[in-house]
Design a protein around this nucleic acid. Structure first.
Lengths: 231, 231
DNA sequence: CCAAAAGTGTTCGAACTACACCCATGG
DNA sequence: CCATGGGTGTAGTTCGAACACTTTTGG
């Protein structure tokens, strides 16, 4: 990698060795009442044919957040989703090609806003339930584990879960999201009391009729903030 | 930076431009009943003469955590302190020399264990109260702000503050640490009740006599864990 | 009229807050 | 003996957990 000064393919030279830097994105959504995340099938070596997180190299003049958003847009066709930096993974040897340091991001979006299509260097893109992941390239299993823990623990003290819902939603839908995330049933009355006490949602006044039962009130988030921290 | 292929000073060449990667460490301690952090005076350009976080470039085969620990050991002469990854700062232009992406760490240690001496490329190393920081190099003011927020918010749901105390301590000392961190007085009885209920500390059986008053019971942490998360 | 989700209050225990006095020591 | 920090309990309030029935609609 570093012994090819004569090779005009490698015109970027430094006094000391430099690692490559990538961003990888763990994009969660809820599909079929299960927490799922987006993976791409690698079209190139290393790990060709394995599944991996969407991501790629940071352009030399590109901010890290922008890189994550760009890579995601290239993979999912979606912009303007929730994105937060998760942590940086840089164990030597995690990429067999060269030293690669990866800044991981946690992303959330409602299923409705996602239209996934395979990008250039991906053979395929697909959703997998967090509970049934395929073998993964690099250390992406570790990255996903950290992302999942972070998401779950943020439920307790933030409104992060609202990022998994579209702009308007019913309290039933909200509860389903929480139940999926914590993988347990929640008492309906307590949940609704809690949700209203947040002072983060307001009724739109509309009703949503879906199926043969009483219509539900429709809510939206009050603030423009992506997420707010509680108490 | 990248146009010097003929220069044997720059023997490390790549197909695409690579950023440099550093670690920077925000090391907090409590001195004189104030939360203070370690800064070094830069001996070289850029920002020569300004104060900056201790840190430096990641060796090409070095893990990120190891790099942070090494840089810190070089500056403070202390090993085995609490270190957690804080976040990665990579805005283009944050370093005027070249693209530098910095993985920031939060470190904590009791004053007793620190013997700070200026390292090689630092003109001086010194402690500054968080409330009275000098002008800082790069985006280090931002990094410190993030570190401080993280420390304060972790007080609520972890035992991170114990990392600011030596192995044995009295409840009075523990309370002083918390009062310094939250910058407020805490009710003594409630605090002690809370501390005991944690089930994280045990009396050593010894008494500590300091000054003209009743001796205090000495405690230590029960677990070997650095920090535990509460509830 | 039946199935299905929407909607709604009360009671109990646990956890947190506020608050004041005696104790042991050094000087 | 006095100044200083060490050490202790109780009452009131707030917050979360458990728990069952009526309402409205579509078919």
């Amino acid at each position: 990698m570093t012994d090819s000064r004569e090779d005009t393919d490698q015109p970027y030279c430094y006094r000391y060795p430099h690692p490559a830097v990538t961003t990888d994105v763990v994009l969660f959504t809820i599909r079929d009442d299960a927490l799922q995340l987006l993976l791409i099938e690698r079209g190139n070596e290393p790990f060709k044919g394995s599944w991996a997180l969407p991501g790629g190299f940071v352009d030399i003049d590109e901010d890290l957040d922008d890189c994550a958003a760009r890579e995601l847009a290239e993979e999912t066709g979606v912009e303007n989703l929730y994105l937060e930096q998760l942590g940086t993974f840089g164990r030597p040897g995690r990429d067999p090609r060269e030293r690669v340091i990866s800044v991981a991001y946690l992303a959330l979006a409602p299923e409705e806003q996602l239209s996934v299509r395979a990008g250039d260097d991906a053979a395929a893109a697909a959703w997998f339930p967090v509970k049934a992941l395929p073998p993964l390239a690099f250390d992406h299993d570790e990255v996903i584990a950290v992302a999942h823990r972070r998401l779950i623990s943020k439920l307790d003290y933030s409104t992060i879960a609202f990022q998994l819902l579209p702009e308007t939603f019913t309290l039933g839908e909200l509860q389903q999201v929480y139940e999926t995330l914590v993988d347990a049933e929640i008492d309906k009355r307590n949940f609704r009391k809690w949700a209203q006490a947040l002072e983060q949602i307001e009724a739109t006044g509309e009703l949503r009729r879906r199926g043969k039962h009483r219509p539900a009130r429709v809510y939206r988030l009050t603030g423009r903030d992506r997420i707010t921290y509680l108490k």
